[in-house]
Design a protein around this nucleic acid. Sequence first.
DNA 1: CTCCTTGCAAAATATTTGCAAGTAG
DNA 2: CTACTTGCAAATATTTTGCAAGGAG
Lengths: 151, 151
Amino acid sequence: MSDLHHPQTRMTQQRSVILEELRKLNTHPTADELYQIVRLRLPRISLGTVYRNLVFLTESGQIMRLESAGNTNRFDANMQPHQHVRCICCGAIADIFPPVLAPETDNIHVPGFARILQSRIEYDGLCEKCAAQADETGHKAVLYHGSLSDN
Amino acid sequence: MSDLHHPQTRMTQQRSVILEELRKLNTHPTADELYQIVRLRLPRISLGTVYRNLVFLTESGQIMRLESAGNTNRFDANMQPHQHVRCICCGAIADIFPPVLAPETDNIHVPGFARILQSRIEYDGLCEKCAAQADETGHKAVLYHGSLSDN
DNA sequence: CTCCTTGCAAAATATTTGCAAGTAG
DNA sequence: CTACTTGCAAATATTTTGCAAGGAG
């Protein structure tokens, strides 16, 4: 959980390919999507290895796990501060540039919380694909999908 | 998916108790946590019914599903605009009052997105329980938990 | 009466983990 | 050599769904 528990340091082929492929993408893939991609280069890699490395890379600050990605984790190797929009219909995520300044946290005090560490702005939107589909079917807008998960 | 698909209108005992109990809480419970609570009043209710009603209540705008709740959905019956802090260590969520104004979305344009619908500010923090535990164990700070899920 | 809703159980999806074998440093 | 890592498979955890019976309006 803390830095004391990070004995992992070895640069294996798997770890390096996972990081390399994630860096090529701006699609914020899920663990499984990344697994499918990495598999093209390392056919014998297992999904468990991808998960373990995503945990390690996240904890060591080399990649980010996206909050608000719905119920499936998504990852981003772009460590520059920036925001994300998520399509409320299909769950697709895109980067927003230029970045907006994160709201300050100094004046915020919450009962039960020792401290507020950081803030984050997130956006909901409708991607072009879903917007087109909504027009086509004659719906004014797709407000929310019928499950608790994302698509 | 759209408003055309909401034939549900009946106020059953299950639905009413679920909403009533959620409104009593400011703990942003998961489906299972709420299930355990509702079960005290309706011992024969099933978890599936709780899930189905949470979907219905969310879609009909009577409750909110929290974004950034980690990998397990959490719900809030407080429909006033407000923000949340989440403990990065244990996943506990608390309300922030008074609310901060949501950043505007008008000037934001993202390739691939037809429109940006709304923005949301979220905060990461350390709850008192986890802060105390971190002091106790001598760690300067608990940076991130070791799994991709929340606790 | 009608058809929305429920309970139950099974299925689907997502993530974690034990263990023996492999390998980086 | 040592102990971190991996592949594999099984275990967890969370959410969804098919179906026959129940109940709201």
